[in-house]
Every structure is written in C-alpha cells, then in structure tokens.
C-alpha cells in the first residue's frame, strides 16, 4: 500500500523530530519554508559549516531567521528548551554533534509540548534519540534525466525511519523554487530498487 507524504510530512506540531543524512540541511530548509513566523536556528559556534542566507532565500525570507551561537551542546539544549517552552518562535532547529540521552530527549519533547512549538534536530548518522517523534533520513540522489524546466534544486530521497504514530515510507521529492512548494516526483513503488519499501 502506498503511503501519501502528506500524512507525515508537515511535521506534527508540538513535537521534536530528527533528521540525518547528507540532505539534512535541505530538509530543514523545506521545513522552515512551511513556517510563516520566526525560526530559531541553534548551532555551536565552532562548526565551520554555516548557512548561506543567499541560498536560503530560495526557500524562505532569511530575515525571519534568528541564529543562536552556543559554546557547547549543553548550552544548545538549554537554549532549545527555553525557546520551545516559550513558544515565541514556532520552529526551533538544533544542530547536534553528540547523541542525546533519554533525559535530554524527553525534556526537549516536554518543552515542545508545553510551548506548542516544533523542534527539529539535525543529527549525525545513527545518533537518534528514543524520544523523537519521527526520524528522517534525507539523501540527495542523482537523476539521469534533468527536469525539462531546468530548475535548480536537488532531487532528494526522504525516508522516514522512525515514526511513533504512523507508518514508515520513502519518497523522492524536489523543492519547487518558483512555486515555493514541495513536489513528490513519482510514487515510490514505480521506481527501481524500492520494491521492498514498506506499504
């Protein structure tokens, strides 16, 4: 059975979700684009990779973005908890560098519930926490035939690898820069190599 993306994708509000893989930043950018209010992005100051607002402007207006630079992950978590609990921003993106333990994951989840804000953790591969509502793996994939309109955006394979309240699934998606929406490229079942996909 084929699971439509819209049963899981606008991420469940007031929960904390996780995403890993090479396309995690792209996933986060698409999530930000669906939020109309301010977004808080928490990163540790020593990380050399940073967001490029010019590239981000294809997804949403970078003036809505606030960046918190922290010294270490403990500070990041404290800032994320404060922001989630406060609810002044409806989305908090958190770059993690070490796995969360049960207590930390649960506290984030409770804070998100209290403030009705959505959290998204960008995690390194295989470092998920048990408390996460959903966990996604986003990888960019190559397509042999480029789209006819000559759009510049990466075709990504989004795979939901953990879901507390629903089924798993895999989708190939592409962000449409001009229409500002997410296109599901083709049903998973029709693509080669996905015959064992759930559903």
């Amino acid at each position: 059975m084929f699971t439509p993306l819209n049963t899981v994708f606008p991420l469940r509000p007031a929960r904390v979700h996780e995403v890993c893989g090479a396309g995690a930043f792209g996933f986060a950018a698409v999530v930000c684009a669906r939020v109309q209010t301010d977004v808080l992005w928490i990163r540790e100051a020593w990380l050399s990779e940073r967001l490029n607002p010019t590239g981000l402007s294809a997804f949403f207006d970078p003036s809505h973005l606030l960046i918190a630079q922290t010294k270490e992950q403990t500070d990041s978590l404290a800032v994320a908890e404060t922001a989630l609990k406060d609810g002044a921003v409806s989305l908090v993106v958190l770059e993690l560098t070490r796995p969360l333990n049960l207590r930390e994951g649960r506290r984030l989840q409770l804070a998100a519930k209290a403030g009705a804000a959505t959290g998204l953790c960008l995690i390194p591969e295989g470092m998920g926490s048990n408390a996460a509502e959903t966990r996604w793996n986003a990888t960019p994939i190559h397509e042999s035939h480029p789209p006819p309109r000559g759009e510049d955006s990466t075709l990504m394979r989004w795979e939901i690898i953990k879901n507390k309240s629903g089924t798993l699934g895999v989708w190939d998606v592409r962000w449409d820069h001009t229409a500002h929406r997410l296109d599901v490229v083709s049903p998973v079942g029709e693509r080669p190599g996905s015959s064992h996909a759930p559903g």
Partner: peptide, 19 residues
Amino acid sequence: NDLITRIGTRIGLENIQRF
C-alpha cells in the same frame, strides 16, 4: 524580544544573530 533576552542571559546577547 523577551525570548532573546532570556536566551541572552545564558549565552550572551551578542550570540543571538540575524542575517
């Protein structure tokens, strides 16, 4: 702004930035 102040007491007000 209240949120920025509250976070700023922990990590420093100048560490909350915008583009």
